[in-house]
Design a protein around this nucleic acid. Structure first.
Lengths: 197, 197
DNA sequence: ATCCGTATACTCGTAGACGAATATCCGGAA
DNA sequence: TTCCGGATATTCGTCTACGAGTATACGGAT
């Protein structure tokens, strides 16, 4: 289903949305994104930024407006959103919002090969994860509560979502660890034997 | 924190784990992975498979054992896991299990630019997502219950995890949609006005 | 007056990811 | 017997992602 975008990198989505506000040059986009805390959602890759902006231009989704030389600094090219770009943004967001796509988190990959470790070791590691997760959860909750006093909630939904998912992961993980610890997880003995023999 | 792996692609993890069982040639790995249902977790990219195996060999994590020409078929190179490869696998799984890393699901990106759509439209799309999500949830639950009768639970933890996360997403989403529908989401009027004016 | 750390702004080379093409074999239908 | 479609196995070339490097300017400390 998921349509093939001319520029598929999610960084392009961020760029387009930044340009909704006003024309900017690439470096400025990065700054704006960082200030908005988007850098946590998607760590800004400098190499990609310029490639992505270039591709967006090539496909007519953004257009260069001017090349200003301010002081003696390197020349900056300012880009603005085209009509096609605006349309692409709307279309893309709509698709992303409406269509759940199967994500493949790294942790799932790890679980799928968990059997390569002996059960005791796996349990120990999972317990470690759970502890870290809970600690992060607490500080993230506080951080969110803090920014919620300054930023309207509309711009924090992503964080609320992320937090909810983390909480769910912690809950699920706690249940698994309990089963492993109590020995009620089925097949534990076979798993153990596989690693002893 | 996350150590830089010689071969970072998660497909490499799957390859290493497949080779734990017995030596194989690349195409066979793909088949085995597919049969185990891993192809859902990570859609097999043929281009990557051979690159990844090649890189694993270059770094001494796997080694070619023989090149068999069976019948007149193209020559197949069979690879086995080296000691270094086994160690890498254990180390990698351990890290992935123990260390929660900030994932950046596409949906989070979508939420972060949701404001570019008018609230009514966003709500409509989210409702659509919720419906799809719930439908998928039901069929996935049944599918899992089905395979659970044939495969030991140890090899289904990833699926249980995926399912739990989906459920959590659906719950969170339902709550959000309710707020939007009831009009109790704060700042709804400002959001609307931004798009009318 | 000069030094230097930090912010600004971008370029480039390379490693990796992946789609699509290629080539051969086998079994069954015509 | 011959033809064809699907399974077997891999190669190739392109396109992308990104780290690391480069170069200048500004402001405060020395």
């Amino acid at each position: 289903m998921a349509k093939r975008r001319k520029v598929g990198n999610l960084l392009a989505l961020a760029v387009l949305s930044a340009l909704m506000e006003r024309p900017m040059h690439p470096y400025e986009m990065a700054s704006v994104l960082r200030e908005r805390g988007k850098d946590q959602d998607m760590r800004i890759k400098w190499g990609s930024l310029y490639t992505v902006v270039g591709n967006l231009e090539k496909h007519g989704l953004v257009a260069a407006t001017e090349s200003v030389r301010q002081g003696g600094r390197p020349e900056r090219t300012v880009y603005r959103l085209t009509d096609a770009g605006r349309a692409e943004l709307v279309d893309w967001v709509s698709e992303l919002l409406a269509t759940p796509e199967p994500e493949q988190p790294r942790f799932a990959a790890a679980l799928s090969v968990m059997a390569t470790l002996p059960p005791a070791e796996a349990t120990r590691l999972l317990r470690e994860r759970l502890a870290t997760l809970r600690a992060e959860l607490i500080s993230d909750e506080q951080a969110l509560a803090g920014t919620a006093r300054q930023v309207p909630r509309l711009f924090l939904v992503e964080d609320e979502y992320a937090l909810a998912m983390r909480r769910a992961e912690a809950d699920w993980l706690a249940a698994l660890v309990d089963e492993l610890t109590a020995g009620t997880f089925p097949g534990l003995d076979g798993w153990q034997r596989f690693h002893s023999g």
